[in-house]
Write a protein that binds this DNA or RNA. Structure first.
Lengths: 123, 123
DNA sequence: TTGTTATTGCGAAAATACTTGCAATAATTT
DNA sequence: AAATTATTGCAAGTATTTTCGCAATAACAA
């Protein structure tokens, strides 16, 4: 039976408050603000548990590596800000999958990653 | 002074023959067909050297991890075939960067990864 | 052909990312 | 409140990928 722990609550709360894909390091660091003793192993164990339960999913970013994000959002692109180093979800899809696919190929999915400066860091 | 070695020649030849981004494992394996003694450390050392000299560049793929590809090609997208597991360059760009970028954000670069079946593996 | 040294092969070591054993703790049931 | 056991913290252990030390080899200059 799954128990309700302050550690797991803290981890989930980090996602709800940040509302963007997060790396393990940031989850641990931000979660530690609420549960001081929060341990890396605990974070990993809970991330695995939350992915298995469908509450989170894994995002593999070409620059940032592995991140975790809340499930339930529609297909979207990702924006990585080189200044604050955060990854943002960009609602919508500006890729014409058909145009992008060469003859003979069958595209089943795609991922788009943008790089630059976010609105908070630009100018 | 940089010398001309059969090992490095074999590694470069793999790229010229395959003409797609390659993982270390495939470089080592294919290169070994020409130079039987070819060692993993030698491959890593030469990849680093070829990247430094501008002959190769690193591609970080969200599924395949780190690959190496010849420099000199125009911006393009990548297609990963789930059947043969190869990564293909797709000439051209079907992403409208402006449409993809939210107000206030500044996009400086982007990467597009498609997934599906290549022409050799589909139907 | 000989000398110099870049390069290689090999095994060990490092770096990174994640997992596990285990005793202690704490959430939940009874 | 007591019993049960999921969960945690900690440290050690895995797994994977890349690098390094070093002696042997081989490319190139002279």
């Amino acid at each position: 039976m799954i128990r309700n722990t302050t550690q797991r609550n803290a981890i989930q709360d980090v996602f709800l408050r940040k509302d963007r894909p997060l790396r393990v390091e940031e989850i641990l660091q931000t979660g530690s603000e609420r549960v001081e003793s929060l341990n890396q192993a605990t974070v990993y164990r809970n991330l695995k548990l939350l992915v298995a339960s469908g509450w989170l999913r894994i995002v593999k970013h070409p620059k940032l590596g592995i991140l975790y994000e809340r499930t339930g959002k529609a297909h979207h692109h990702y924006f990585h800000c080189r200044s604050c180093n955060h990854l943002f979800d960009l609602p919508g899809c500006a890729l014409n999958e058909k145009d992008a696919t060469p003859p003979g190929f069958t595209t089943e999915a795609h991922e788009v990653f943008l790089f630059g400066l976010c609105s908070g860091c630009g100018v």
